[in-house]
Write a protein that binds this DNA or RNA. Structure first.
Lengths: 348, 348
DNA sequence: AACTACAATGAGCACGTTAACATACGGCAT
DNA sequence: ATGCCGTATGTTAACGTGCTCATTGTAGTT
């Protein structure tokens, strides 16, 4: 905190005497009733051209903007969605945010953004409380980290709630890129190309995304009856990928490496090459996220691409459906697609 | 559009009979007046413990949340800032957004995010109109592209407005990373290390950031009386950097290359090496943004780092100052810092 | 002339909250 | 007993908008 909070300044500072212009002010200047001003603002018929003109002039002169408070107090709706995210700066989240914002805009909604508290364990209930006191008609949570009260959380009555998460929720619709399915897809893709020794370099513990990607890989290997060696865990950075790639270079049986994200894949690939393993001739490498395009020159990494902007759009669509009366609770998983570049070879 | 917009659903859908719980409902259940409920909600003194308890129980039972509309109608403040950005997904913007959101939160503000319309020329006036009808106490614009009515734009009376932009504005405080100064800094840095033939690979035309970085480089060379060859222009991607790097490899006089961002620098560096120019022995390379850390293994690029999250925080600070009555219009430019890695050599 | 039909506008209320003022009550000094 | 004070609570009014209903004005029909 430190400084005074918004609530306090509200009463104290006000608009320093410059109280915003109201419809009554406009009506007075234009010599009409407030209701006529209201009609002009809302583009209703039944206003004669000359009156409309006079009102519009008065609005311009006074710099009138309809008060959101008054309007929504009457209508009951704000036209805003509350969105809560863990870490906006993580690459995937931004695209999703962007998708939500633009889909919302198309339906006349704005997006109010808050971040999860960082210190201490996270509880959806607390965030929901905070959002419920903001001018929002519903909520979207993006929970890609562990949440204490995930299962017992109950959405605020009257406020449709969607959760972006791989974990299913008993009362809320969840939506996410299919982090589990993408791994099975990659394993199938590699098996079709003759690979039987497929190792995995996963993201850090505590990351739900990393866990689901890992589980998908493990289940796919088990289902296919392939040998499954212990996966390694990095921290999503290229340098951690390099470090673990050095270890993996020792494994002469490995013919394919599936890495939990592209940056680590980049690191691992560099390490493999530096230690005499050719890519893709000796070892095929597949990443996830397709995040290197434009960042690295001549990007050749075969990877899985999720349309995260689309994920945001779909999230809003489900939100909008609930706003419109849809009651169904479902778990939507959006599939990724393999982007074939040049780091996978076919085994004889 | 296509579907109905928020405004329309407001009246039509309502909360489908589930009108939100009001203070009056709580008061009735607890057997007190609305005012007493209000006092409990706002943690005011002068409520006897037993009454408070009864009211709180009633609130819990009914699932009461104070209505933002009613509250702000009375108080005149919303506790929300409107933020308008061009493209959230551009790397720098996210960090800034994050800084604003977290600084705002510390002062009890939420951030309502909208994007600039994409089609057609952009006018601040239109965006301001849209924001002014949302529940916001002020606005922040992030304008890193050309805006049609930049100079003549007048902020909405009563709504403090800050613009994140290198261009100065006659009526609004502007703030930005010092895109101009960083280039001068880089040129000085290279001159101190004996370089006299410093070329520039700039970002695309139409990017204000690219223009200011270019102008800083040009002015610094002119001021030092150094030869200034025509700069090349890429599109921020590593591949465009590579392509132009191939051309620059022909220039045997060039001893230093200053590139408008790190990704192009990465591409250019790769091209230079591929064409027999050693980095940094033959050519020193400096980028801007420090955006490769964690993305590329063993990142060695010397670059300029801006603390963009800090930029967001500072932006909010200036906004908050204006909310508190500060009238001053200023142009704040936040300096970057050179991150020394291994792509600059000292000339004999 | 008296009527209906319709267009244009106005009056009044309701939404949920809170500041300002009003009331009730017990305790204490005069 | 009277007056005063402080605490706890209730009452009233106001914030700005938009819906419903009422009123006025105008044109057309009988």
């Amino acid at each position: 905190m430190g400084r005074s909070v918004a609530g306090e300044t509200g009463a104290a500072a006000g608009r320093r005497g410059t109280r915003a212009v109201s419809m009554a002010d406009v009506a007075r200047l234009a010599g009409v009733s407030r209701q006529t001003v209201s009609r002009v603002v809302n583009n209703q018929a039944c206003v004669v051209e000359e009156t409309r003109k006079r009102v519009e002039d008065a609005m311009d002169e006074l710099g009138f903007y309809p008060s959101f408070a008054g309007r929504s107090l009457r209508g009951g709706k704000y036209g805003c969605i509350g969105l809560c995210m863990f870490d906006i700066t993580r690459a995937g989240n931004v695209a999703t945010l962007d998708g939500i914002v633009s889909a919302a805009r198309d339906c006349g909604y704005a997006v109010t953004l808050v971040e999860f508290d960082e210190g201490g364990p996270v509880r959806l209930r607390n965030v929901a409380r905070r959002l419920a006191e903001l001018p929002v008609d519903g909520m979207i949570f993006n929970t890609n980290r562990a949440v204490e009260d995930f299962d017992e959380f109950k959405p605020v009555p009257g406020l449709p709630t969607i959760i972006i998460s791989m974990k299913e929720h008993p009362r809320c619709t969840t939506i996410d890129s299919d982090q589990y399915g993408c791994s099975r897809m990659v394993v199938d893709y590699l098996r079709e190309r003759g690979h039987a020794h497929i190792r995995h370099l996963a993201g850090p513990e505590g990351s739900i995304t990393a866990d689901f990607r890992l589980r998908g890989w493990a289940d796919a290997l088990d289902a296919a009856g392939l040998e499954r060696l212990e996966p390694l865990r990095g921290d999503w950075t290229a340098d951690s990928g390099y470090e673990l790639g050095v270890k993996l270079a020792q494994d002469k049986d490995m013919t394919a490496l599936y890495v939990g994200n592209d940056q680590m894949a980049m690191g691992a690939m560099t390490a493999l090459r530096a230690h005499g393993r050719r890519v893709p001739e000796d070892v095929s490498v597949v990443g996830v996220d397709d995040s290197l395009q434009g960042v690295v020159p001549h990007n050749t990494l075969t990877t899985v691409r999720f349309d995260l902007r689309e994920r945001g759009k779909r999230t809003f669509d489900h939100f909008f459906a609930q706003m419109s009366g849809e009651e169904r609770v479902e778990a939507v998983r959006l599939p990724g697609a393999i982007v074939e570049r040049a780091t996978v070879a076919v085994r004889p």
